[in-house]
Design a protein around this nucleic acid. Structure first.
Lengths: 221, 221
DNA sequence: CCTGATTTTGCAGAGCCTGCACTTTTGCAT
DNA sequence: ATGCAAAAGTGCAGGCTCTGCAAAATCAGG
């Protein structure tokens, strides 16, 4: 498993992290070997050396064990977005922040591969995974807004009249950009997976953002 | 419930549709009244006048009953996309096809409102709902590709060398556009819901596509 | 070592979901 | 109308998921 930040905290927190990691890893390995829906919570717990009840102290749902890899990734993307050079457009800054994170993710190669295989074999888990990422979307939108110096949400009934429309557009933009981030990643991954060989993932990713920045023109044959 | 196409088919299919609709409607009404997780399959089935077992003949999962509204919507969008005037760009054609469908959806006002409320109160159902729509994404991508006269997927090892890159880009485009369709709808709905009054949904929707067509420029304050 | 806080565990029980065999309903041809 | 085959609905047994609760084990600090 990833060792990022594994040495911090007292014995208690280290043990907790270890238990969670053990459960998640056991879940993925068992799923990769026997198929997702043949893996019971009982089996996962046994493989991780804890009781079945403890599993549910760490994951709300059996499926959650197959989904969450790195809960800090979204924080890093946000930080990268805020730290990006000011001369980059919001779209460019977002592109670079995502590219950096995705490049880093390719380090944890073995588990990432197993994960990809498991998610590909179980669409409903893929959906769940996307949903988990989506939960961070509001936070990402706020980061975009902060970069623009624009509030993503404002209290009711404030501001002079006539400003409504402009404010609405300003709030829409960060939301849209944050949503596009996940869409871009998803489409990039799907397209990249659907082709046995060819472009590297980074290249596909660039293509996606090129199309977005160009306003989605009809491609020429 | 929606009566669209309710008169088609024989008695058998009409009854099936009615049963499914009754289950879905019962689920939503019960959820709106008592809260999603206080509604059991038993209660839904009883309200719809069928056995608990029958519920699972129609829905794979309890949650599915809260999610699917109209399984034919995607077919209509695809048809509209293919029937759109040739002079429209793919993005414009997609915009209009979606707008037409969404305008139609606003007819079924009462259930649509209950639905929105239920999904807003249960994020995991919202995720599921998005996932359901995502499942149609490949079909939509194929429609986009058909409009362009471009295959979205090609058999392995065909075609002259050097054509790889261009073909990759051609395959990427429909996928991206299809994915953007759902993103646009989602962001539009979210943004629209987050503001008590103001723009109509149609206006918000237009704004989203204007931003996309312009290549996501940084908004000016 | 003792105490309080946190974590783990076992257990009971409700609810979700599936496979299977069986009954009822529907479509259709005679 | 009647009979037959296919489709839909039903009942039941049983396994798995998930929750609340209280007891036991583990960690942190005086």
């Amino acid at each position: 498993m990833s060792e990022r930040g594994a040495a911090e905290g007292g014995l208690r927190e280290r043990k907790k992290r270890a238990t969670r990691a053990a459960l998640a890893e056991a879940a993925i390995r068992l799923a990769a070997e026997h198929g997702v829906d043949k893996v019971t919570v009982e089996a996962i717990s046994a493989a991780a050396g804890v009781s079945e009840r403890t599993f549910f102290n760490y994951f709300d749902t059996r499926d959650d064990a197959f989904v969450v890899i790195d809960s800090e990734a979204t924080d890093r993307v946000r930080a990268a977005l805020l730290a990006a050079p000011a001369e980059l457009s919001p779209l460019e800054a977002l592109r670079d922040a995502l590219a950096a994170e995705l490049a880093g993710a390719e380090q944890d190669h073995e588990l990432w591969g197993l994960h990809a295989g498991v998610l590909r074999s179980a669409p409903h888990l893929l959906v769940r995974s996307l949903g988990a990422h989506m939960a961070d979307e509001t936070a990402l939108a706020e980061a975009v807004a902060a970069r623009l110096g624009t509030p993503v949400a404002v209290p009711d009934g404030a501001g002079p009249p006539g400003e409504e429309e402009r404010r609405a557009a300003l709030e829409l933009y960060p939301r849209l950009l944050a949503a596009l981030a996940h869409t871009a990643v998803r489409v990039g991954v799907e397209h990249w997976c659907s082709r046995r060989e060819g472009d590297s993932f980074a290249e596909v990713f660039q293509q996606v953002f090129t199309l977005l920045a160009a306003g989605l023109p009809a491609p020429t044959r």
